[in-house]
């Protein structure tokens, strides 16, 4: 399949899932005729028809609620929330219904829904279009939360999430949609890493940097710069936020003794906090420095002309690496 953008890779993953299982449906705002505002569902309605690729009204609560009903009747709906900030009108369906139904029915009812959310900033968007709400979903028992960072993962992870009987929040880093990666010819999802595994993208000895989604690329860049300054930085792509792949996370800290967490979302009460807590619990005797958190500031996402100041950049990541390495 060669060099493929993340957006195209997810598109191909959706197509493969729909070919493999006639119960897989795609629904959302502009996912059909338009093919999605980021073209992630491009061509699917043409090939699978309006019954399987459904253009919905602008009503996120309705989209998710309809998907709940479909899931209860054996379908496997994939809902697109057009932008992260629009997920809030659909929150009750997600946290009160989707997340809790399996548990409340004593396991009798399954809710195999995938909710795709293009998330994060960096594209110069207006308000409500650059949010990173992943911690809110990870804090909700009953949901699984994953974030892809590259085309190969996007292709495989969307298929794995659809195949699971659990409800998923599937986070797509919208500013990385156009970045390409190699998908080998003949690659099939059976050869992919397990969905809830983290991945050491770049081994290192001095500091572990934990990132996911859009920040993985930033972490890799920081590691390359740090190498030039004599620091060996390990980069871990979490891939799965809930559940966390603790053996990989703690194994990395056991080797390096130092940890930096990295995400776009505001730092307080975020994913980095939970990582710091888990590392504190599990790596008590190998931790040699404070766990530093790099992330968005505790303010609403800023207007586009300020977002470069808000988003963690190379300087902020390198500063954190320097501080923990020299502690």
């Amino acid at each position: 399949m060669g060099q493929t953008t993340l957006a195209k890779a997810i598109n191909m993953g959706l197509r493969t899932a729909m070919e493999d299982d006639p119960k897989v449906l795609v629904m959302g705002e502009d996912v059909g005729r338009l093919g999605g505002v980021f073209r992630v569902t491009d061509g699917l309605q043409k090939d699978f028809g309006e019954d399987r690729v459904i253009d919905t009204p602008l009503a996120e609560s309705g989209i998710i609620g309809t998907a709940v009903g479909l899931a209860l009747r054996g379908y496997r709906p994939v809902c697109e929330i057009q932008f992260d900030g629009f997920v809030f009108p659909g929150f009750d369906q997600i946290v009160s219904q989707v997340a809790k139904m399996h548990y409340r029915s004593l396991g009798k009812v399954r809710v195999p829904i995938v909710i795709r959310i293009p998330f994060g900033g960096g594209i110069g968007a207006v308000e409500h279009h650059s949010e990173s709400p992943e911690a809110l979903f990870a804090h909700t028992p009953g949901l699984k939360v994953v974030a892809c960072s590259n085309a190969l993962d996007g292709y495989a992870m969307i298929q794995q999430a659809i195949a699971s009987d659990d409800p998923y929040i599937f986070l797509e880093p919208k500013r990385r949609y156009w970045e390409k990666a190699e998908i080998p010819d003949g690659f099939s999802v059976g050869a992919a890493d397990p969905l809830h595994s983290a991945r050491v993208l770049r081994p290192g000895r001095d500091v572990s940097v934990f990132a996911y989604g859009p920040m993985v690329r930033t972490a890799i860049q920081a590691a390359a710069v740090a190498e030039g300054e004599g620091r060996s930085v390990e980069v871990v792509d979490l891939r799965s936020i809930s559940p966390l792949d603790l053996p990989v996370i703690t194994g990395s800290v056991a080797r390096t003794g130092r940890a930096v967490t990295l995400h776009e979302a505001p730092v307080s009460f975020g994913v980095g906090a939970e990582l710091a807590a888990r590392i504190t619990e599990a790596c008590f005797y190998s931790l040699e420095a404070p766990v530093l958190r790099v992330g968005g500031f505790d303010v609403p996402y800023p207007p586009a002309r300020l977002e470069e100041e808000y988003l963690p950049d190379l300087d902020r990541v390198l500063d954190a690496i320097d501080r923990v390495a020299s502690y």
Binding site: H139, S242, F269, A276, E281, V291, L292
Partner: peptide, 29 residues
């Protein structure tokens, strides 16, 4: 009384861990 993961207990642990993990001899939630 809130859920354990990705909430208040994590933020409190992180607050100590980023200030000085040497302060802590034991931690639990």
């Amino acid at each position: 009384e809130d859920y354990r993961s990705f909430g208040l207990s994590g933020e409190i642990a992180a607050t100590v861990a980023e200030h000085d993990p040497g302060l802590l001899r034991r931690f639990a939630r």
